[in-house]
Nucleic acid binder design. Structure first.
Length: 667
DNA sequence: CTTGGTTTCTC
DNA sequence: AGAAACCAA
């Protein structure tokens, strides 16, 4: 009887899991999860994300146990080596897994496939994460789309529907685990435990809870999604994103259930409901598109898709950054959002746009810093989605927001939070300010402020940058950017100095010190228990006390958690990622893994070749479904021609000229 | 039907 | 910010 390893990653479910189904079909199954976060480079998962993963894994394990096997867990610094080890010690001959599309996984999974195949293992991989694989959705010339709406239009009009979701297996025959013990995985340290305990009050990870959440949403808030989705102060979103991130829920199942509901509403002539489904599907589509982008442009988490931004003179000011993180910018909507993020690991989509737009356009901080902070703090932190979002905000996609556009948090405040309830919930110091002034306290008459107990600059800050100042600074920055761009082009056209000194890597701005994960052991050891796992400056005021009071309080951070909870405050600390043990960055043979993996030039340079495209021409429509089943996987080849300026240009040439022209005119 | 002034939406 | 959709005469 064939023994196969089913490698679980971000597909933590038993239902509609093609890799698991394949394993069950072929015989005995070893269900495996490998924890190798160092492989993610700078993107070591944040505290709340690790908490979720931990919960989700134990629920997956109990599901697997009900079906007849158990989840084998391994701690590793090299997934591929661990796979080999597990395969050998369990006498497995097959490996099945589901595709991931983030840059780290693309490289790792390709390597896994190569090495294991060399070792005589049968490796097959599947689509479990998307409605359509990225290489299935192309334009009439076979090229990938460069705008979301063209991409999504095509998805919705594909000649074949997304695969219908599969039922979970009835029974799993377990492989022999006796010669391959599990490692105990540690996802939290002592200082994180207290804060993590709070998360369980608000969130229930796991695939069966994901299904419940979906049902609740479809039968409830979905109907009014089209009208309510823009309100920041009420919970009208699906709350599915963390479930989807970890693959606890199949998007195809979501898709089919939504479609079913939509048909039902259409038959009833319920137009609002129909429209709501379209809009919600669109947000599912954005998730699809983020994978699509990442697959087609694997550097999009660190490089602007439109290259001009590499000349943007970012304001490298850590005090701005700190004010933003702490929710002390002086703009109530921004600050409320940042406090909510800090406290709960969650943020309404609209507010994500507000705070990130403020970050890039008003503060003009490097967008990768903001993205990294989201990564560290969001419960649904997702590299592809976050990269797409930040590039959209930064104006570096063909269809993103204009560069020179500045959103005004005051105006957004009155449209997303017209009654100021959201602001009052997260900024208790402004709780007594009348709605008229709630989004512009700096304009309020002195007596109003006094009556509300507000002293601007003392218990609530004045705006750290005025919108007008930001506008003119942005104009200057943009003309500087165009100037530099022109200079650079001139140099390049003059020939000889080609490529000299202007490779993108040189212009990457390092993350601030307190975001770095590569702390040397000395630093880690010298940190007291109280500070390990904290951004030290991130002691955001408690919801129940004034700013001043909390600043005195910050030492007893964790002990005050329960008290805060009693006041309906799910505040928690934001994780850092400094727990990395330096040794884990070493390969077993002593060769040091590059610490800058993913950050600097070291990220493997590859060209994408789509296997499907290279496949023999016999792949006619009759074989199509089999191809999709068998999981045609992109072939990655290390290339000497990196993702370079020239490739950047070809990207520009291909996409519709709209934005590029506008941008050029700006300068 | 136009017309001009709103509101809404942008991934 | 600017286009598109909407709406009140």
């Amino acid at each position: 009887m064939t023994i196969s390893v089913v490698w679980f990653r971000r597909d933590l479910r038993v239902e509609d899991n093609p890799a698991l189904a394949a394993g069950v079909r072929s015989g005995k199954v070893i269900a495996l999860f490998i924890w190798a976060p160092e492989e993610e480079g700078h993107y070591y998962p944040g505290r709340v994300s690790r908490w979720w993963l931990n919960q989700s894994l134990s629920l997956l394990n109990s599901s697997l146990q009900n079906l007849g096997t158990t989840l084998l867990t391994k701690r590793s610094s090299d997934s591929v080596l661990s796979l080999l080890h597990v395969i050998k010690s369990t006498a497995a001959t097959h490996l099945f897994f589901n595709h991931l599309y983030d840059p780290f996984s693309l490289v790792r999974d390709h390597r896994a496939k190569e090495i294991l195949t060399e070792n005589g293992i049968v490796v097959r991989s599947f689509n479990a994460d998307l409605l359509y694989e990225p290489w299935e959705v192309v334009d009439d010339e076979g090229q990938p789309f460069n705008t979301f709406s063209s991409f999504w239009d095509r998805c919705l009009s594909m000649p074949y529907d997304p695969q219908p979701p599969q039922l979970p297996p009835k029974r799993i025959i377990s492989g022999d685990l006796s010669r391959c013990p599990s490692d105990t995985l540690v996802f939290e340290n002592d200082s994180e435990r207290g804060s993590n305990a709070l998360l369980a009050r608000a969130w229930s990870p796991g695939w069966s809870n994901a299904n419940k959440t979906l049902t609740t949403f479809i039968n409830g808030p979905l109907l009014d999604y089209s009208t309510n989705r823009r309100k920041a102060d009420t919970a009208t979103t699906s709350f599915l994103s963390p479930h989807l991130h970890f693959g606890e829920l199949s998007v195809r199942k979501v898709f089919h259930q939504l479609r079913t509901k939509q048909i039902l509403w259409a038959n009833e002539g319920n137009q609002a409901g129909e429209e709501s489904v379209n809009l919600f599907l669109k947000s599912i589509g954005l998730r699809e598109y983020s994978r699509y982008m990442s697959f087609n442009h694997p550097y999009s988490h660190e490089r602007p898709l439109l290259g001009h931004l590499k000349f943007f003179p970012w304001v490298v000011d850590e005090s701005y950054f700190k004010a933003w993180r702490q929710g002390r910018t002086g703009y109530p909507l921004v600050d409320a959002g940042m406090r909510e993020l800090w406290a709960t690991g969650w943020l309404h989509d609209r507010i994500r746009v507000v705070v990130s737009s403020f970050f890039v356009k008003v503060l003009q901080l490097p967008w990768r810093w903001g993205m990294k902070y989201f990564w560290d703090t969001l419960l649904d932190a997702d590299l592809e989605s976050d990269a797409l979002g930040w590039q959209y905000i930064s104006g570096t996609l063909p269809d993103s927001r204009q560069f020179d556009r500045i959103d005004n948090p005051q105006i957004d405040g009155y449209s997303f939070d017209p009654n100021g309830e959201y602001v009052r919930r997260w900024l208790p110091e402004l709780a007594r300010l009348p709605t008229e002034w709630i989004h512009q306290p700096w304009d309020a008459p002195e007596y109003v402020l006094q009556a509300a107990g507000i002293e601007l600059g003392s218990n609530y800050p004045l705006p750290i940058v005025t919108i007008n100042a930001a506008k003119s600074r942005l104009q200057e920055a943009l003309s500087h950017m165009w100037q530099q761009e022109a200079n650079s082009r001139a140099i390049r056209e003059n020939g000889t100095e080609e490529g000299l000194g202007d490779s993108f890597e040189d212009t990457l701005i390092a993350f601030p010190q307190d975001m770095q994960m590569e702390l040397d052991e000395e630093t880690v050891r010298n940190r007291t228990t109280a500070t390990v796992g904290h951004y030290e400056d991130q002691m955001v005021p408690s919801m129940t006390t004034s700013l001043l009071r909390v600043e005195e309080d910050q030492e007893e951070e964790s002990s005050s958690d329960e008290r805060n909870l009693a006041h309906n405050n799910t505040r928690a600390q934001v994780p850092t990622n400094n727990i990395l043990n330096r040794e884990l960055l070493q390969e077993p043979n002593g060769q040091e893994l590059d610490q800058d993996f993913g950050m600097q030039s070291v990220l493997p340079q590859f060209n994408i070749q789509i296997a499907l495209r290279n496949a023999p021409a016999e792949s006619s429509s009759s074989s199509r479904s089999r191809e999709r089943e068998s999981g045609v996987v992109p072939v990655w080849s290390p290339a000497n021609s990196s993702y370079s300026v020239s490739e950047d240009n070809s990207y520009l040439q291909r996409h519709p000229q709209i934005n590029w022209r506008q941008l050029s005119q700006t300068g």
